[in-house]
């Protein structure tokens, strides 16, 4: 299996593995809402870490865009729209940013 973070730019030049980070006031439906957007664009979730502390929801996903219908930029725009609806904040970065800064 190809490992997340090992060469996340495909032949097309598009980042394939991205991190999706969501946080904000906890409420029902955040995971479903975010995952729903990912499913609609055929993005594949490789990993999820999620926790709630003192009512603050925090989630990090690693997502494979290899077969997705959108690139990072378009995914970010779709997720930001969904995050506004959910009242949370979302950040989308190529996984390389995390790899370079945290696991050189």
């Amino acid at each position: 299996m190809e490992q997340p973070g090992s060469g996340s730019i495909g032949a097309s030049g598009r980042a394939r593995h991205v991190v999706v980070f969501v946080h904000g006031r906890d409420r029902p439906g955040i995971v479903a809402g975010i995952a729903g957007v990912l499913a609609r664009v055929n993005a594949n979730i490789l990993d999820i870490s999620q926790t709630v502390m003192r009512g603050v929801f925090t989630m990090a996903m690693i997502v494979d865009l290899g077969a997705a219908r959108v690139g990072v930029g378009e995914l970010r725009r779709l997720l930001e729209e969904e995050a506004r609806r959910l009242g949370v904040e979302v950040s989308v970065h190529s996984i390389e940013v995390v790899r370079y800064m945290e696991r050189p």
Partner: peptide, 20 residues
């Protein structure tokens, strides 16, 4: 062995630096 995925703490640190 397979390289472990990134932890919530690592990702949160990067996002925090970039975003906030």
């Amino acid at each position: 062995g397979e390289r472990p995925l990134y932890g919530l703490g690592e990702i949160a640190e990067v996002v925090e630096m970039l975003r906030y």
